[in-house]
């Protein structure tokens, strides 16, 4: 049996707004194995960030707008359904930042501007471990060195605005890793950075992941980042995981029309052929198409089928599942069929 550390099943999360109810995540399912990096890709509004935030219960959704299961399986302890915990209760707070931690896209807004990064990193450790300030500070300097922060002894006393974007992101990673988490949720960790800095940060995350044996959920819109970092890829569209497969299968043998379209929209460094983007735009969250969420943009949509019912997940290969009627998906409903 595969060693799963985090299992998300049929997750739904929504927000009531003055314009109507937004189903940000609408039946997403995937699981994260111990020690692997799973890439979650999709365009803005597909629910990838809300999924990550819901795992930590920081998405701001009230309990009645949440459903599904997020099972966290810590080593040597019983599995915990994170959705069953109170959003601000002591149980989730013991996990948040210690066992599952997160790095955010914009380190300038994620850090508090009025505290030094050192104090913020020390706080992250002292919340979860019984150590003195001095001990924590020594550990923080050690971690800053580990993330290759230039001049760690001095920059620990810097305020976030005194650091460059790349250095701030390193400080954020150091903070997330202080308690040696089981799972690291990385929400677009390199989107705000230059390519050369991005390469530095990605290789840093990869090295540390291997050294600590943690799992990484890499949330990104950049297929290049996914190809380089992930072993498994989940493609999200309008709040659902439409395809999930090992990374090579996604890039060489994509099944879902959306995954194919996404791959065709990326300019390749090898060719200058005209791009073939998906027609149209991601529908507004208030105006979702009925049936399969992609049917109104899909070149292979079958009228009478795709616009009526929701396809269920079909297994099309070794650990490769896709939600599309082209490959079956006939069973009505959206529950994932699995043997867990």
């Amino acid at each position: 049996m595969v060693d799963v550390v985090l299992d998300v099943q049929n997750l739904r999360a929504g927000f009531p707004t003055p314009e109507g109810f937004v189903k940000a995540v609408d039946g997403a399912s995937f699981s994260v194995r111990r020690g692997e990096t799973i890439g979650v890709v999709g365009e803005s509004g597909c629910g990838k960030s809300i999924t990550a935030r819901t795992i930590l219960r920081i998405s701001g959704t009230s309990d009645q707008n949440l459903s599904g299961r997020i099972e966290y399986r810590p080593p040597g302890r019983n599995a915990i359904d994170l959705l069953g915990l109170r959003a601000n209760g002591p149980e989730i707070r013991a996990i948040r930042g210690a066992e599952i931690s997160m790095i955010f896209q914009e380190p300038m807004t994620a850090f508090s501007p009025v505290h030094t990064i050192g104090n913020q990193i020390v706080e992250a450790l002292r919340l979860h471990r019984d150590v003195t300030y001095e001990e924590a500070r020594v550990a923080a300097i050690g971690m800053l060195k580990r993330v290759e922060m230039s001049n760690a002894e001095r920059s620990i006393d810097a305020y976030p605005h005194q650091l460059s974007g790349g250095m701030r992101q390193r400080a954020m990673i150091a903070m997330a890793l202080m308690c040696s988490p089981q799972v690291l949720l990385a929400d677009e960790p390199t989107t705000a950075l230059d390519v050369t800095t991005q390469a530095q940060i990605l290789s840093l995350i990869r090295e540390i992941k291997e050294a600590l044996g943690m799992s990484v959920v890499m949330i990104t819109h950049d297929l290049g980042v996914v190809a380089e970092t992930s072993q498994t890829v989940a493609v999200m569209y309008l709040g659902r995981v439409v395809e999930i497969a090992p990374v090579r299968a996604i890039f060489n043998d994509a099944k879902h029309p959306y995954t194919k379209a996404l791959l065709a929209s990326v300019p390749k460094l090898e060719s200058r052929e005209r791009l073939e983007p998906v027609s149209g735009m991601v529908p507004s969250p208030f105006n979702r198409p009925s049936g399969c969420p992609f049917n109104d943009r899909c070149p292979a949509a079958m009228p009478g089928v795709c616009d009526v019912r929701m396809p269920s997940e079909t297994n099309v290969g070794d650990e490769h599942t896709v939600s599309c009627f082209l490959y079956g998906g006939d069973e009505d409903g959206s529950r994932r069929v699995d043997g867990l």
């Binding site: 230059d194 390469a199 530095q200 297929l223 290049g224 190809a227 390749k268």
Partner: peptide, 25 residues
């Protein structure tokens, strides 16, 4: 050369002999 090698390529089998630049601009 370093700039080109830093671009993540959407191909999991691409060769990864990356030149990671040290330091900042």
């Amino acid at each position: 050369e370093a700039l080109l090698s830093a671009v993540p390529k959407p191909n999991p089998d691409a060769a990864k002999n990356r030149i990671v630049l040290k330091g900042e601009i």
